[in-house]
Design a binder for these strands. Structure first.
Lengths: 333, 333
DNA sequence: AAACTTCGTTTAAACGATTAAACAATTAAC
DNA sequence: GTTAATTGTTTAATCGTTTAAACGAAGTTT
């Protein structure tokens, strides 16, 4: 990478100080500078293809116009979809995005946060893993602008954008009930993540609301990031009960796929409800209900909150968006 | 974001110069510094939670330890999968990654390149769109370290990591022929992208090799980024010929889905071959052959080439990996 | 004509690190 | 006991910007 053109080069060539060049190129001191000089500086800058060194600028003005995005795994469709929206919003406001995947591990998340802060990002968008409370609190007290997405910590009054998980799960289960299902199982997680617990509570609330009793045997829990191995077993468990389930609520997009794969292989046809749309829904015979998150709104809102937080100090905002229940009816055979 | 701790703060507290602090914290001048002072500096640094300002460091040493990743669309599974691999490799070498999506548009790609270069990235990983020749050439002459992925420009001797597209397409078509298919259509693109033309040539080579004639009516071309609308029409066209096709090669992962959706809806059962694995393959009744790219190898190789290029000057490397043909046999009904 | 303004530009410090060179104090060499 | 080498630390320049303050020259007031 050969030496790049700096303000100094332009200044020398034109025969003025670097200050003047800086003023001209930033359109400062309007009218104070001789028009002739302005034109000359602009012409020389263009002819040398001058591009300001953002690193130097960042150091001086103490602003990098960079935001850090931390997701669980950038290759997960939810994360990459969100990343794309954040990217577009960020760029349209003059920011660039650096990203990292935590793999749902708090230590990796902390490492990423440190790395990003050392790189002087102006703010962070974080999809926090379990046990991130301490980290979040530390960000908060250090007054680093950030916004949580998808997950939240009820006891911490920090910026967050989520969906109303309780309502979402409830409406999904209500739909199954409406379809006449009586023994509705749930594939959930062994986790302290509040948004997942909210979904569990929504499931229970729906059952209670319909006068069905909540049966612990119908609730199977798997480990985060172990979906591929554990979900098929969990589903098998629900199907082999003395009174097997006639429907299943999958509490996340990562459980749906292994679950459906198993059901499909076993040729079992029961009611299905899940979170987030997947391509496969178009190719599955059975009808499926799923919660569609307003991902675009979420991304836009998150970045809006973050940018407001970066520029002005602003009270924390907790947003809970309404998600939509979508029914994919069985297509004609 | 409140004021951060700098070398100066530590120096003041300990009562030494910033130079000494810098030496200690970077383990320079081993043994030259009084052990007592070393310990004191380290202790104070730790107690103040000192974190070096990477921006200042970058400006001084002219290295940001950042690489820029430009893909077509980060929300596309191929891109996000690649992003994840690049991320892991980059972080394990002390680099962070900034990314952007070009949407297959050369102007956006140029804008991203400029933005990244202004931010002084040490190198670029680029999945170049059509007509990127000029841009690539300019990167090359400006001696900016970069590596192309997935696509390449045969007349430009620059770093690139791709698969052997000709062989891949040929083997996929050969498989269809082996399955007894006689009229094999292809959904391709209206494009100048060499890797896609290679795939077309592979298709033709396979037909010729089997003594089948290449029929222009069996080749439908769609526009990049217009797959959802145009592919169903193209498939419909192939099916409504006086002599309809009995198999189709989909030349990209973005054409497979809309194509299968249409075939599925029409209940048509023909031979299918495509590029890249999709979740839906597990749920489709018909057997499918697809080309599986060694994405991990590609990502690792790309970053390896890039980092070698950043540190030493090194001759350009063109890598063509072998892709694997996978057969998903029809599962028992 | 002395005292202000205004205009157009330059000077110089600053951001937070790195690092070659200088330096004073001690120890070693002859 | 003068010179030389070693040790431990500081000085100061530098990276490429930004920007408050200073500045000389010309114009305006009195």
């Amino acid at each position: 990478m050969k030496k790049r053109i700096s303000l100094k080069d332009i200044a020398q060539k034109v025969g003025v100080s670097t200050a003047l060049v800086s003023y001209v190129l930033n359109n400062r001191m309007q009218g104070r500078i001789r028009e002739e000089v302005v034109q000359k500086i602009k012409k020389v800058a263009a002819s040398l293809h001058y591009q300001p060194n953002q690193v130097a600028k960042s150091l001086k003005i103490n602003k990098t116009n960079t935001i850090g995005l931390i997701v669980a795994d950038i290759s997960n469709p939810y994360s990459s979809g969100l990343a794309r929206i954040i990217e577009d919003e960020a760029y349209s406001h003059g920011y660039t995005v650096i990203f990292g995947s935590s793999d749902e591990r708090i230590e990796k998340c902390e490492l990423l946060v440190d790395t990003f802060i050392n790189r002087q990002v102006d703010g962070l968008v974080v999809l926090p893993p379990e046990n991130a409370d301490k980290l979040i609190k530390s960000l908060h007290t250090r007054k680093i602008p950030f916004v949580l997405v998808d997950r939240y910590f009820p006891e911490l009054p920090v910026n967050s954008v989520c969906i109303n998980n309780h309502e979402a799960a409830k409406s999904a289960v209500n739909m199954l009930i409406q379809q006449g299902k009586k023994r509705i199982g749930m594939i959930s997680y062994n986790t302290t993540l509040t948004h997942l617990q909210d979904r569990e509570k929504g499931y229970k609330a729906a059952l209670k609301g319909a006068g069905l009793k909540v049966d612990a045997k119908l609730i199977k829990k798997v480990m985060l990031s172990k979906e591929e191995e554990e979900v098929p077993l969990a589903v098998a468990g629900l199907l082999s009960l003395s009174q097997p389930v006639d429907a299943i609520l999958f509490i996340s997009n990562k459980t749906v796929l292994p679950g459906l794969r198993y059901l499909n292989a076993q040729q079992v046809d029961i009611g299905i409800a899940g979170f987030d749309k997947t391509e496969i829904f178009d190719f599955i015979q059975m009808p499926i209900s799923y919660i569609q998150q307003p991902l675009h709104q979420i991304g836009v809102a998150a970045l809006d909150i973050l940018l407001k937080n970066i520029s002005k100090r602003q009270k924390s905002t907790q947003l809970f968006m309404e998600a939509q229940l979508v029914n994919k009816v069985q297509f004609a055979d």
